[in-house]
Design a binder for these strands. Structure first.
Length: 881
DNA sequence: GAACTCACG
DNA sequence: ACGTACGTGAGTTCC
């Protein structure tokens, strides 16, 4: 049997991977997407080809002779972006660690080396595969040399294979004629000029007729398209040069020893370390046979026996610290993980409900451990609290919240990530153990693995506790964790349990009323369009409006026409169908998301229980899901009417209090700008005051338009001002927007300095902070992409403001709920909407609760401007707002 | 599952 | 020159 060699064009494949994959980084901020993509395709090739030899060729960074010649023709190449450049040496190191030889040579491109080794290997009787993204290499194809070119089509990578016959088939030319083809048509990507005006079509035609560049030239006078004829006559030198540029050398004087290229084991210990460092979790399972996986499992045991469970819980109770994970999904207890130290040895147990070890039993034991003063470490304390009531002062450690504070940008805080970052251990992820199964499904199908999962969770929570606390301390966020996030966790848990009462019948009627109008609009829209189509499909709608009805302003998104509201609003005045569509959109949104959507969440008690997420946002705000009760309509009257279905229980009213412009007040305080602080001390209407000061007009003479503009500028400042954004918002030119901003900064000079300082700080430290020390990393500032960098600047300006406001209301929430409890009131905090608190208030407690809200919200932070609130009562959320 | 749209602060 | 305002979650369509 013939031996096989795989030759890879290193830069070409890295380049492809870099542009084809989203921007991955490891926790140190090293970009890894190109390396990841390279390895992915390498492993795929290894499985498909099973080669005996493997070598990767790289260009040396110094420009080669051929490129120098070309540069004389057409400037310089675009430099490699820093995000890719930094991956090249790492890639070489990884290959080195896997025992793969790297081939480079001064004065020779990777192409030349690949060509040379391919031919030599063929001569030795081997089958050769060359992997590259570069079609130039097709000239090397023979019966035994196959060029493989990966192509990405619609997110999927397919590989095109070219032996000599495939080249012939695809191009009607022999492999060697590919050189001639390039010489004639050129290749901008590869810096080959070619003949002006000659493209692939003409070039192929000429070659089919004359066979080569030289022969075509010899018959130049008879060449048919005049354009090509003239090109030959006037620019033949270009074709000659191009041919030389396009020719891959197969006689490079490179030393090559096949034995060093022979593949032994790619999955070495050294490679494992690299993969860990790069955080390529998916690849680590490949190392399993080499015995490199975590040793944690040696301490694990699955407990099924009731007596043994009893014994272990009794032991655990005596421990000062335990790791405890109660795995729950949709109200069901699916398992319990328990970890503690026994005579210096870590013991970890997984238990699933079965036999005498019932759900209730596990719950009971978990609760006992929490209550008996063991400092319990868990990944998600609030999930555990769903099934038990604990005093707010119970000592608990929440690993996910700690990890969130340390890096709020992650989308999830899974145990394997926490273990990797804070313990330096690679644990099998949930997916490795359970595949794509949900926990509930795993409970039925993969019991052993599920038990292992809860072990890993309890193990990680317990072991990572100290490192996480130390990291919080080092980052100056220990207080934030202990005095803000952990107390808030209990408050949020209470809010989730309370829920909010909803009048189901009224909600249903609201939906039915909408449906009547929706049906009318649908008919009207179809009638005006002259056909029935799916109005909900932006694609179909775009075709109707911009093609069939020929409306102006088409094209905007990658996939077609934009039919977003701001586009349609511009057309609504001229086209009746468009205003119908806008109304249709509004109503169907209200119907599906709110009328129908919320109905599904009402429990037997007539209440809706949202989940308040504490580890989602980048800035420190909380978020609300299933359902989201932080985006209930209010801006339009029709939407606002929906709030009439949110009602307090009998004998209660709603008390709603929201901060007045908290972010702008935070800005005034943090910047220390005297003029803005003074403005707040004097004026009721800050936007009017801003207008008066920025436009230099008396307060009384500010027009509504001027006030509106000033308000937009105020918002813009908080969002991280840009003239473009402001001009969009106000429908003015960028120049005018620039002038507004300039005026604003002249009026409030310290604000400019404050914002500039935030950006500088983000660049220096890599993060910005709130008044309470909460951090937000801003990695975008390091990007070589202008847009990303600009985004980073706006984030640096906005996050401390939005985040400080979030901190303040968190403090208020903790204090308000504490006082409601301490003063033995029946009233309960039930919702938070970023700057607003909603209290279900007993009718006889309204006065007392109003006073509490007033004191605690205003007193949540000591700023150089006062914190003001607006407060209302009502028999529904509609009335109370 | 990504893209689009739209509800909120 | 580049092409956007900051922070979220959910429903629908379509590949």
């Amino acid at each position: 049997m013939r031996e096989k060699i795989l030759l890879i064009d290193g830069h070409s494949i890295l380049n492809r991977a870099f542009y084809g994959l989203p921007d991955l980084t490891n926790s140190e901020g090293l970009h890894t997407n190109a390396i990841y993509g390279f390895l992915n395709i390498l492993f795929k090739m290894m499985e498909e080809e099973k080669p005996d030899y493997l070598t990767v060729a790289f260009d040396l960074s110094a420009p080669t002779f051929r490129h120098k010649m070309y540069d004389a023709y057409k400037g310089t190449r675009r430099p490699m972006p820093q995000e890719l450049r930094q991956q090249v040496p790492v890639m070489k190191d990884v290959l080195g660690a896997m025992g793969v030889p790297i081939l480079s040579m001064e004065g020779y491109e990777a192409d030349d080396l690949l060509g040379t080794i391919a031919k030599r290997s063929e001569a030795k009787g081997m089958d050769v595969t060359v992997l590259s993204g570069d079609r130039d290499l097709l000239q090397l194809a023979t019966d035994h040399i196959c060029i493989r070119i990966p192509k990405t089509k619609g997110g999927k990578t397919t590989i095109e294979d070219y032996f000599a016959k495939d080249v012939q088939e695809a191009y009607q030319l022999s492999p060697l004629q590919i050189i001639e083809l390039k010489a004639l048509m050129g290749d901008t990507a590869d810096n080959i000029p070619g003949l002006p005006g000659v493209g692939e079509k003409t070039a192929t035609k000429l070659l089919l007729e004359y066979g080569s560049v030289e022969n075509a030239h010899a018959h130049a006078e008879e060449i048919k398209p005049n354009k090509a004829k003239n090109a030959f006559l006037e620019h033949y030198d270009l074709a000659v040069l191009s041919k030389d540029l396009a020719t891959i050398r197969i006689d490079s004087p490179v030393e090559y020893d096949w034995e060093t290229a022979r593949i032994h084991d790619l999955y070495t210990q050294e490679a494992y370390e690299f993969f860990k460092e790069l955080e390529f979790k998916n690849f680590l399972s490949r190392f399993e046979e080499t015995g490199n996986t975590s040793k944690a499992e040696e301490h694990f045991a699955t407990i099924t026996d009731f007596a043994k469970a009893e014994e272990l819980f009794a032991l655990a109770q005596k421990k000062e610290r335990v790791g405890l994970e109660l795995l729950e999904e949709k109200g069901m207890i699916l398992g319990l993980g328990l970890a503690y130290e026994e005579e210096g040895d870590l013991q970890v147990y997984g238990m699933l409900p079965q036999g005498f070890v019932t759900e209730a039993y596990l719950l009971d034991k978990a609760k006992m451990l929490c209550q008996q003063g063991n400092a319990v470490a868990s990944l998600n304390v609030k999930a555990m609290l769903r099934h038990m009531d604990l005093d707010h002062h119970t000592a608990m450690f929440d690993a996910q919240i700690a990890a969130y504070l340390l890096n709020p940008l992650k989308s999830e805080y899974a145990y394997d990530d926490i273990a990797r970052e804070y313990l330096g251990e690679m644990l099998p992820a949930k997916e490795d153990l359970l595949g794509k199964l949900s926990y509930s499904k795993a409970a039925a199908e993969k019991e052993e693995e599920l038990a292992k999962s809860v072990c890993y969770m309890a193990y990680t929570a317990l072991k990572a506790r100290q490192p996480l606390l130390e990291a919080l301390e080092a980052a100056g966020m220990k207080k934030l964790y202990t005095d803000m996030e952990m107390p808030l966790l209990f408050t949020l848990s209470d809010m989730e349990k309370e829920g909010i009462r909803v009048n189901a019948e009224e909600l249903k009627e609201y939906g039915e009323k909408l449906q009547v109008r929706i049906a009318e609009l649908e008919k009207s829209i179809w009638q005006q369009a002259g056909e029935e189509f799916n109005i909900n499909s932006p694609k179909q709608l775009g075709v109707i409006l911009f093609e069939k009805l020929q409306m102006p302003g088409g094209k905007k998104t990658k996939t077609g026409y934009s039919t977003a509201a701001d586009v349609l609003e511009k057309l609504a005045a001229d086209y009746a169908i468009v205003s119908d569509i806008l109304e249709y959109r509004q109503l169907t949104k209200l119907k599906s998301t709110y009328a129908d959507g919320l109905a599904g969440y009402i429990d037997e008690g007539g209440r809706i229980h949202s989940t308040f997420n504490q580890t989602i946002t980048a800035t420190g705000r909380i978020s609300s899901t299933e359902p989201n009760l932080q985006n209930i309509p209010v801006r339009t009257e029709l939407g606002r009417l929906l709030r009439k279905v949110f009602i307090p229980q009998d004998g209660y009213v709603f008390l709603d209090a929201d901060y007045s412009q908290i972010e702008l007040r935070v800005l005034a305080h943090m910047s220390g700008d005297e003029k803005l602080i003074q403005a707040y001390r004097e004026a009721q209407d800050i936007h009017r005051m801003t207008a008066s000061q920025v436009f230099h007009i008396p307060f009384e003479e500010v027009t509504p338009l001027q006030r509106r503009n000033a308000k937009a500028v105020n918002f813009g400042i908080v969002y991280g001002i840009s003239s473009f954004g402001l001009s969009q918002d106000l429908s003015i030119t960028r120049k005018e927007a620039e002038q507004y901003i300039k005026n604003y900064f002249e009026t409030y000079p310290k604000i400019k300095g404050f914002l500039d300082n935030l950006v500088q700080q983000a660049k220096d430290e890599g993060y910005v902070s709130t008044m309470f020390g909460r951090r937000r990393p801003v990695p975008e500032l390091k990007s070589s992409n202008f847009m990303q960098r600009s985004f980073g600047e706006r984030v640096a300006m906005n996050s401390p403001i939005q985040g400080t406001a979030a901190d303040i209301i968190k403090i208020a929430m903790i204090q308000v709920s504490r006082r409601l409890k301490e003063e033995n009131l029946k009233s309960r905090l039930i919702l938070q909407i970023h700057d607003e608190l909603l209290i279900e208030t007993a009718e006889d407690e309204v006065e007392q609760v109003s006073a509490i809200l007033e004191q605690e919200m205003k007193g949540a932070a000591e700023l150089s401007v006062s914190l003001e609130i607006d407060m209302h009562t009502g028999k529904s959320w509609y009335e109370a707002k």
